[in-house]
Amino acid sequence: MEPTSRRRLAHGILASTALLLVAVAQANTPTIRLFPTTVVEDLRQTSSVAREMETGLQEVIGRLDQQQQLYLESKCDGAEDDPGCQRLAKQIGATYLDMLGIMEERLPDMEHTVNNTRLSLEKRLRSELGNKMTSWTLQETLLGGNPPKDMAAPTPSLRGRSGMRLSERFSQYYKLVASSSSHTDQSLAVLASDIYLDMEETSMLIARTREEIARATLIEQLNQSFGTITPEMMEVVGGVKTILFGDDTALAPVAGPPPGSVEQAYRSPLQN
């Protein structure tokens, strides 16, 4: 073989070896499996169940708002003995019962899908981050090799999302998770934690709401005979609107770093 060909062959072997080593190194990089397909599917289903519930409630809550406005405009507040006002109050009470009925009907489905997602995530978090990692490796995962700032990274910090519709929230989770293969372990750990804690809260809220619905229905059925609007009734309606359709609570502003010159980072031999 000629020297040139031999050199080319040697270069080829070296290049292939280097490629092979890179591939092996990538294969050995520990990846955390937080979002298997079951969790992705659970999220998608939760989003669609939430949307169905919203659609059902939107009309009845709209009606309730109109009736309440009419009640106030007719100066019924303080004139509860007036027969016209009593009729209006009864209509509001009936719509309120409709709302409770729809919630009673839809909440079990919602509870079921939320719990499924919560339990799947719980199992994953326990095994991948709780049992397989130390606090130091968790920190290294979160730092994730410091990706460059301009990288199109997902923004998983979704906590404090009260101004968002329930279905929209789950739909956003689904979209983030469904494209999880393009995410780093770093953002996935934060995302999974965020969703899990949100599911915990939602799950508790649904359970509490279901307990309350039976009580509220009974009280309203009694009120129907007297045609009164209780402050509690208005509070419940307000609460349901907040949960389902979000409120106006402004998101806390996120502080940016102060201006200042930053030189290229110095790396000490003591640095971990």
Partner: peptide, 17 residues
């Protein structure tokens, strides 16, 4: 902040198990 969030979720999951 990330460690605080992830540990809250992880520890809740650990205690649930």
């Amino acid at each position: 902040q990330e460690v605080e969030l992830v540990l809250e979720a992880t520890c809740t999951a650990c205690s649930a198990g």
